[in-house]
């Protein structure tokens, strides 16, 4: 936020911030609504309401505007009944209310296809994949990053290779992961780990290096040495920044999810999305995509709040 906002910090200032924040969501929604509900904006298709004399037209069919005009002309020339229709958007752009409805039915109405997973089942499966992937990555990556950032020789030994490895795109390991870990959840978790871990080590090593040197020096003059320097000074000293890093990295883990779920047997929210797209239930597709965003963004908001509580002593936490 701007300097003025932080300096003022008044009630009206925070209200203004909140309003702008809500506005940033309403604005895209407004554009979407305009395109969906105002007939003369875009609407490149025509939805047939009466086929008239055109033999292949059916009620509810979407045809291109030009095609509809051509067929109307032909019908007029042959003195057949004129077809009727109304402007429509392509099937891949459902209107907001249709997506809103899909949100509701996704949780309440049984899927049209047999054996197809419910929306929430798919989502829960995805969340589990993310959880395990991120947990495994963190168990390895956080200690490694802290060590690399604290001990320069350890950093020099590990970081060049990690730096190299992080350029290898995680999905490239898909086939390998399937060969080793089978076709179910194993390879998917592995892809998320590969996508997150290497960035994690480097980012956390950097964060660790940014700890003020005099804080460590002060601790040493107070008689701290060895492992205690790490556990009592370095780790608590970087904890708020480490927490922030983890929040960002969790976001990255989500971006690897879709690719990861395509590996082996497609599963989770990705399977749901591809399945629904195949049957042209684009309202469901949008609902599922938005749900990923809501869950990701929502978790981050909750974690940010939690961070403010956990690290009251850290001034930087207030900035966001």
């Amino acid at each position: 936020m701007s300097l003025i906002a932080t300096l003022a910090g008044t009630d009206s200032e925070t209200r203004k911030r909140a309003l702008l924040g809500i506005g940033s969501f309403l604005l895209p929604l407004l554009v979407w609504s305009l395109v969906s509900y105002v007939p003369f904006i875009w609407h490149p298709k025509v939805e047939v309401t009466a086929p008239g004399g055109v033999d292949y037209f059916q009620v509810g069919m979407l045809v291109d505007k030009s095609q509809f005009a051509d067929e109307s002309n032909t019908a007029r020339e042959q003195n057949l009944a004129l077809p009727a229709g109304k402007p429509a958007n392509p099937i891949y752009l459902p209107a907001p209310h249709e997506v809103a409805q899909a949100f509701y039915t996704g949780f309440t109405r049984e899927p049209v296809q047999k054996d197809a997973p419910w929306l929430h089942e798919s989502l829960w499966h995805s969340i589990q994949i993310i959880f395990w992937g991120f947990l495994i990555s963190s168990i390895v990556g956080v200690p490694l990053g802290i060590l690399a950032g604290t001990y320069s020789s350890f950093g020099r030994l590990s970081e060049p290779f990690i730096e190299y490895f992080r350029y290898l795109p995680a999905p490239a390991f898909g086939a390998l992961a399937v060969a080793i870990l089978g076709i179910y959840d194993g390879p998917k978790i592995a892809i998320i780990v590969i996508g997150t871990l290497f960035q994690q080590v480097l980012i956390i090593a950097n964060t660790t290096r940014k700890l003020e040197a005099t804080i460590v020096e002060a601790a040493r003059t107070l008689g701290t040495r060895g492992a205690k320097l790490l556990t009592r000074v370095v780790v608590p000293g970087i904890l708020p920044d480490l927490y922030r890093d983890q929040r960002i990295l969790l976001g990255w883990a989500w971006t690897y999810l879709i690719v990861a779920e395509l590996i082996g047997t497609s599963s989770g929210i990705t399977f749901y999305i591809t399945q629904q797209a195949r049957y042209q239930h684009f309202d469901n597709v949008y609902a599922a995509i938005m749900l990923i965003g809501i869950i990701g963004f929502g978790t981050d908001l909750v974690l940010a709040r939690l961070g403010k509580r956990l690290f009251r002593w850290d001034l930087a936490q207030d900035r966001r």
């Binding site: 002060a218 601790a219 003059t221 000293g237 002593w313």
Partner: peptide, 27 residues
Amino acid sequence: PGPDRGMVFQGYSLFPWLTVKKNVMFG
């Protein structure tokens, strides 16, 4: 370094995550 020599730095270098009392308790 050792606790037989106390050091006070220009930049305070207190431990920001500890309260005043716990800072002093650290040594």
